[in-house]
Nucleic acid binder design. Structure first.
Lengths: 237, 237
DNA sequence: GGCGTTATATGATATAAATCATATAATTTA
DNA sequence: TAAATTATATGATTTATATCATATAACGCC
């Protein structure tokens, strides 16, 4: 349980343009931005920020994967969102001048930079384009959260589990074999996203494995029969 | 099932400052805003906008109550949010230039104005203050959606039902008797928010009634024992 | 490299909540 | 105002899923 802080690194290797919302900045604005951010390397399992903390700036994921979690009742963890490289995190609390309502934890070693709060506000006030990019990001998160609500409300655990696997694939894509989902989550973490018990999660993955929908190798999950998995998830369209 | 459109009215009786986000505008900006909006009266049960539709502008609730719903699986309705007078609706799709992902339906007769899309974008680009107000609104909605996710994921139906009653009270307040929740929802609508069956919803309300947590009179629900209801909801702090 | 700890797996059991069924009350509308 | 429809109520039954229990596998550590 050693929890050392991130290791500060220079920004020379960090291409901030990786981060989608900053695509809209021109050469000069990007240079300016780089002068107001600092990069750091995080080890797997480290906290980027924690529930109830005050935002010091905006975090950009240069590489690595992040989970946004909140502590529910009886300390049970709930995974709210999963974040990939190129994304920003912690923008909500920052923009609305609030404390974080969830924590950000690295799922693997990650390179993350933090953009100075004051500078970020200057940047979005002077660049409506950038502001709109961030707003679009929040809009997407809200739409996804609403979809999650409908799913939790109306689908059974089996359907949600299939849906979660499709979501993981949509978020992180496949590995080079074109069928292994490119993220390693524990069964408990998957359960914490799906909203079920760890046992039920394990059991359903085993079933899907037996039914040849997926194949399992440690934490790695491969989608063997996408069509059947979509059917199991009971997705419209 | 007759679904007539709203009745257009003048804006002379509509105080746009009612709408919280517009508080930040000065006298002149408000005047300008009023020149670019039009008010209308909606009857109970009418659609303000519908899922998949394209936003024509921003809606402001001058009076009345609104539910934001989305159609889930097998056509089952999910209530995502409840909106009261003074609030804006439809801002998400508008800001991110998307179609609506949910519908807005009046829960009672309502007076609602629509602010022209083009003008609204001009307004937020020229007034960062206004933009931040809207962003804060979205931030709150996202935080609330996240809380809803945790609740659906981790609480049982009884706890969620108690929580829902507290949420209704927090949103719409009490009537003059200081204990009757100031909104009329059908049992089915409450179920569609809580994420349960109508029968279970009815049953639990009956139980709460028997246990003297609430009292029922038609669609009107009064909170008789707030402390016990909070306990039943299993809320932290 | 063996030992303790944690993660995964699977069976057995309990139970919350959905579903089905039927009755009554409250609205709507003819 | 009566008939029809819809909403509320409550009982009986089924079922999905949590919980408890135990075993094995994988992993971190001295």
């Amino acid at each position: 349980m050693k929890q050392n802080g991130p290791i500060e690194t220079g920004c020379m290797h960090c291409n901030v343009r990786l981060n989608s919302v900053f695509n809209v900045l021109d050469e000069e604005q990007t240079k300016e931005l780089c002068a107001h951010k600092s990069c750091a390397v995080y080890k797997k399992g480290q906290y980027v920020f924690t529930e109830n903390g005050l935002p010091a700036g905006l975090f950009c994921i240069n590489s690595g994967k992040i989970k946004l979690t909140t502590t529910g009742y009886d300390g049970k963890e709930q995974i709210l969102r999963l974040v990939k490289s190129g994304d920003i995190v912690g923008y909500r609390a920052l923009l609305s001048n609030e404390r974080y309502h969830c924590s950000a934890v690295t799922l693997e070693d990650a390179s993350i930079c933090i953009i100075d709060k004051k500078y970020f506000f200057d940047a979005i006030e002077s660049s409506p384009k950038l502001m709109f990019e961030v707003v679009k990001k929040m809009s997407n998160d809200l739409k996804a959260a609403d979809a999650h609500i409908v799913s939790l409300s109306q689908k059974n655990v089996r359907e949600r589990m299939a849906e979660a696997l499709l979501f993981l694939k949509a978020t992180y894509g496949f590995e080079s074999d074109n069928q292994t989902i490119n993220v390693s989550l524990s069964r408990e973490e998957i359960a914490d996203y799906v909203g079920t018990s760890t046992e039920s999660c394990i059991r359903l993955l085993s079933e899907f494995n037996n039914d040849q929908l997926i194949s399992l190798k440690g934490k790695k999950i491969s989608i063997v029969n996408l069509q059947k998995l979509i059917q199991t998830a009971n997705i419209e369209d």
